[in-house]
Design a protein around this nucleic acid. Structure first.
Lengths: 196, 196
DNA sequence: ACTGGTATTAGTACCAAGTGCTAATAATTC
DNA sequence: GAATTATTAGCACTTGGTACTAATACCAGT
């Protein structure tokens, strides 16, 4: 017993925490104890075995990815959409979206929500942002639920452009607004399939 | 042989792609062949075994996380900065930044790089974006290295504002440009600490 | 010095999900 | 019908473990 089991277990928890890929053997070597001791420690601390740990990390990732694939295209969750007319999305601001220093959401997240909503509302294969003009009206904090509404304001079928206005609110207060000029490939300039 | 090895292998690749957690046994059952056949297929297609696949997914996640923490505050890597004057950052566009459909980078990533550079260049505790005006000049693709330059263009010490111009280029061609109006807490309106 | 109790180590059997290799059977194609 | 390709079977071995039993070590109390 070099210096208490407790201390070792504390370090062990830490070590595994920041590198879940370590085997019992490596741990045993690191702490100068036998593999069995490590196993006992893991049991007491109910830390799962390597392969389970890896699986956990992987499935976390996977869940993220599963969510990220559809959602990555759209920051925030779309809750209502009428193609070529309007769309609504929700975005819950979390710790990772804010500046550590002051807890205020980084602008690009709000922009991302607005921009991806603008892309989504366009009923076309390809929609790209050409220009945008945004105003960050009021700081947004972690915990805030941002509701963003995009409204199609106009089109220019010759230039393949669609103009969209976006407003984001938190508790009915406007926190962000912007105008987006979007480019689209296929015309649909006057929406002959509006009912679909 | 139900219907060609080729077809089975195609499906197998797909199946594993969208669920890396499946075992050979499950696959064998699914395709009505023996486990050995599945193994042979995996070899031919050089698809690693379950545990390796899981490990891959997990370590992807891990790398992302490790990278996401420091970089999250600043999208892209800052390579040069003169506080309150100019700043330069690099952002390598990867698959995850582009639309699957056409391989063009989603606008908000370029905005994010520009915006976080604008925040970074300001020599202050707190810097928030108030307004911005951006133009997506030319599509950016996966593999492109975007070099973004932010230049402080002016200040209004009464209103605590700083005006920044940002230009992003790929191979010396402008792909994005924007103006950012930033709010800062502490004056530093006329930069009495310019040398620091 | 003897007894306890915790801590550590050792050793064995077993498991999952494989690899690697050999060999036997289909099924197809020429 | 022989040659070729595809599929299946079987066995030994690998990793990184679990489960369980048993042997030591160590440290303290009385």
């Amino acid at each position: 017993m070099k210096r208490t089991k407790k201390e070792r277990q504390r370090l062990l928890t830490e070590t595994i925490q920041d590198n879940p890929f370590v085997t019992d053997e490596q741990l045993a070597a690191q702490f100068g104890v036998s593999v069995q001791t490590i196993r006992l420690d893991r049991m007491e601390l109910s830390i799962p075995e390597l392969r389970e740990r890896i699986k956990d990390v992987a499935s976390q990732n996977y869940e993220n990815e599963v969510k990220a694939l559809p959602i990555d295209e759209i920051i925030g969750e779309i809750i209502d959409i009428e193609l070529d007319q309007r769309a609504l999305s929700i975005f819950d601001v979390k710790e990772e979206h804010v500046f550590q220093r002051n807890g205020i959401a980084r602008g690009h997240h709000l922009f991302a929500q607005a921009n991806s909503l603008a892309v989504a509302v366009i009923n076309d294969e390809l929609a790209l942002t050409v220009k945008s003009n945004v105003v960050f009206v009021k700081p947004v904090k972690a915990g805030d639920r941002v509701i963003t509404k995009a409204t199609v304001r106009g089109k220019n079928s010759e230039k393949n452009r669609t103009y969209i206005e976006v407003v984001s609110t938190v508790n009915n207060e406007t926190v962000f607004k912007g105008e987006f000029e979007m480019y689209r490939t296929k015309g649909s300039g006057d929406n002959h399939e509006a009912s679909n």
